Simulated assay, not measured.
Amino acid sequence: MEYKIHGTVMQALEVTLARGESIYTESGGMAWMTDGIDMKTSGKGGLGSMIGRKLAGESMFMTTYTCQVDQGMITFTPESPGKVIPLALKPGYSMICQKDAFMCAEETVQLEMHFRRKLGSGLFGGEGFILQKLTGPGTAFVEIAGEVQMVELKAGERLKIDPGHIAMYEPTCSYDVEMVKGVMNMFMGGEGLFLATVTGPGRVWLQTMPLSNLAGSLKRYIATSS
């Protein structure tokens, strides 16, 4: 499998498959493809996996595309302006992603839901208790809204983040939520009552435009115009 990522703000992922190679995505994830690629939709992994994917922000049914000719091309596009991030996952290596981040992956990559174990993290962590977990071996692609910045944390090093800006992190990092200190900071600071804290070692990917923030801004304009 080979791939190219085209564009800047509204990127497109172009995947070239050789005969017999496959890639899967959520239902409706494909934008266009050449002749000779077989399409098969199923409940990949059974009922438990289907429910888990739905809770993690994806469709219950997944579609697998398999190349039946010497070479075929298939293109996937994101649901919002942002970046397509390729993940080369080694056997047993995982990545924790925000809900609805999954775009597509090789058949060998496992997609499942991931629970935040701490109550505070789940209730106030910006995306709820359930995230997505991608486990190798294989290549997966995720879509992240806005621009993306990766920060590598050393062991014990902490980063305080507005929860909606966390797009993805390595499972070696620990994630928690802490209350903002000071009454004026809580109610007049504009950042809400809680901040996320990610502690290294490990890498964390941050997004500049959480979809919840964008939706909130658009909602104000819609309310004004009506």
Rank of each mutant, 00 (worst) to 15 (best):
I166F: 01
G190M: 15
G146Y: 02
E143P: 09
T64V: 11
A12E: 15
T199N: 11
I51A: 09
L119H: 10
Q11T: 02
L89Q: 01
M73Y: 08
Y175I: 01
L193T: 06
S22E: 12
Q71Y: 11
Q11F: 01
E147Y: 00
K44D: 09
M150K: 15
Y169P: 00
Q98E: 14
G45W: 06
L211E: 03
D35Q: 13
M113V: 02
W32F: 15
E107V: 09
E127C: 10
V142R: 00
G82H: 00
V204H: 00
F124M: 12
E191P: 02
T66F: 15
K154C: 10
G125Y: 01
R117G: 13
T224C: 09
G125P: 01
E127H: 12
V198M: 11
Y221I: 08
W32S: 12
D38F: 09
K40E: 08
T77W: 04
A215L: 14
S80G: 07
A196G: 03
E127S: 13
N213H: 09
E143V: 07
S49K: 14
G20I: 10
Q68I: 12
L89T: 03
D162I: 13
F141P: 00
L134A: 03
L153H: 07
T172E: 08
L119R: 10
Q207V: 01
I74K: 03
H6P: 04
A105G: 04
E152D: 07
Q11D: 04
Q207S: 05
T108E: 04
T77C: 09
E178I: 11
M95D: 01
Y24T: 02
A31C: 09
M209P: 02
G48A: 14
L89W: 03
V109D: 05
L123N: 05
V9C: 12
T16E: 07
A12L: 15
R158A: 07
G146F: 01
S212E: 11
M188P: 02
R203C: 13
T108H: 02
T8N: 12
W205F: 11
P210T: 02
R203F: 06
E107Y: 06
A101P: 00
G164F: 01
S94Y: 05
T63F: 02
L13N: 06
E107Q: 13
E58V: 08
A88H: 13
G29W: 00
P91Q: 06
Q149C: 14
R19A: 12
S212D: 10
K181G: 15
A31W: 10
T16S: 08
V69L: 10
L47Y: 07
G45F: 06
T208S: 02
D162C: 08
M33K: 09
E26P: 04
F194T: 05
E79H: 15
M60I: 06
